[in-house]
Simulated scan of single mutants.
Amino acid sequence: MRNAVGLDISKTTFDATAIIGGIEKSAKFDNDSKGFEQFKGWLTELGCTDAHICMEATGNYYEGIADYIGSLYKVSVVNPLKISKYAESRFTRTKTDKQDAKLIAEYCQTAKAQDLVIRKPVINDGYKLKRLSALYAQLTADSTAQKNRLEAAKDTFVVKICQSNIKHLQRQIKAVKKELEKLTKQSALKDQTDRLATIPAIGRLTAVMLLNYLSGTDFPTSNKFAAFAGLTPQIKDSGTSVRGKPSLTRYGNRRLRAMLFMPAMVAYRIKAFPDFIARLEAKNKPKKVIIAAIMRKLAVIAYHVHKKGEDYDPTRYKAA
């Protein structure tokens, strides 16, 4: 098994557990530049030059140490749901920062190599793209929440507050979209964004969001990217009695999955992939199943367009 290090990260500190050659060591560090240097020195003292470091995607608290240590070691940022399910499989009942770091290290040590996607170092433009994309997603979610409150509101005062909040959020969303557009038209990200925007039903904003995810992690295959988006079917078929309908797995980035929904709807309406859609319709697949299949197809195409550095080729996917 591989040498592994698990990090449990909070706003001001992070706990580390290293499992090197079967020996377990733990320590705690400040989540700042000084702490990063101390963590690096600690790993050097342990002699783990080939360790794989894993951490959960918790807010943005992990980014500092991930950026710093990612130039020296393999780093994977793991979906917290995977760690949670792993803890359940181990019947873990104790929950402390130190115990969580150990659990993450054990997952990192035993997981299959293909399940540990390597995080790419973030360049300046990529870092700004990541921040703006996260801000846009948060503002959009806040706006949706306010609209839902407005719809349920009965009191005049509450209605006015919700309407005011929605207007303010819409102005902010517009400003962020403008900043994203400027970033991807005046930087090294322009060509990559332009290529993704050649895919049918993928607008420039969606292309920007896709680029954020595709450039931030080194996905080895298109299937891994689709799985990251939560667009992998979950099969429930066991013995003679269990025959559940396939459904999308919960293991995935819900924001990326939601982002692909409207483009998939547009692609379905304009018949962007006529042969593909016709085959699914011939099998009497429900519309929502077809939309989910198109979402996955768009994710796979986006991966290949980005990976190969080539514009979308309609002849390649016409009959796919």
Score class of each variant (00 low, 15 high):
A207S: 13
A188E: 13
Y61P: 03
E281M: 08
F157T: 14
R316H: 10
V305T: 08
T58W: 12
T49K: 14
G239S: 03
I83Y: 01
S215Y: 06
T184W: 07
C48R: 01
A153N: 05
K98E: 13
T49V: 05
I161C: 12
T249W: 01
Y61D: 09
L196H: 06
T17N: 02
P233E: 06
L280Y: 10
R250W: 09
K177Q: 14
I118Q: 01
G239V: 01
L196Y: 09
A57C: 03
G22R: 03
M262L: 15
D155W: 02
A292S: 15
K297I: 02
G41Y: 09
C162S: 15
K154C: 06
L103H: 07
T44Q: 15
I53G: 00
A319R: 11
T217I: 10
G126R: 09
G309Q: 08
T232P: 01
S164E: 15
S247T: 14
K174Q: 14
H52V: 04
K82N: 08
V266R: 10
V208Y: 04
A51C: 12
E181S: 14
P263G: 10
A105E: 03
N148G: 03
R93P: 06
K74D: 00
N3Y: 02
A153F: 05
Y127C: 04
K95H: 12
N79Y: 01
C108F: 00
N124P: 09
G244N: 04
A153L: 05
D194Y: 09
T217C: 03
T193M: 11
L150D: 04
R254M: 05
A134W: 08
Y107V: 00
R171D: 15
A293L: 06
D237T: 04
D32I: 06
Q170P: 07
R296G: 04
T156Y: 07
A264T: 06
T193D: 03
I23Q: 14
K85G: 00
L214D: 02
P200F: 11
Y268P: 01
A175Q: 11
F14N: 07
P286R: 08
G230R: 02
G239Q: 04
A105Y: 02
K167H: 11
K174E: 15
K167E: 15
S133Y: 11
T13N: 12
V266Y: 08
V77H: 00
G21L: 05
L211F: 07
A226M: 07
D67A: 15
D313L: 10
I270N: 02
A153D: 07
S33D: 12
K102V: 02
L210K: 00
L210T: 01
A188V: 13
A302N: 04
C54W: 01
P286L: 10
L183M: 09
S164F: 08
N284Q: 14
E281T: 04
A282S: 15
N253K: 07
A292V: 04
I290A: 02
S133I: 06
V122Y: 07
R149H: 11
Y268C: 01
S89A: 15
K236G: 00
A272D: 01
G70K: 03
L72Q: 13
T184S: 10
Y317E: 06
K40P: 00
T221N: 02
E179W: 04
E45G: 12
Q170Y: 07
I123H: 14
E56R: 07
K25A: 10
A113M: 05
E151I: 01
K271P: 00
S71G: 08
A292M: 05
I291Q: 11
G22N: 08
C162W: 07
E88N: 13
F29G: 12
I23S: 12
Y312S: 08
G309K: 09
L132K: 03
A18E: 05
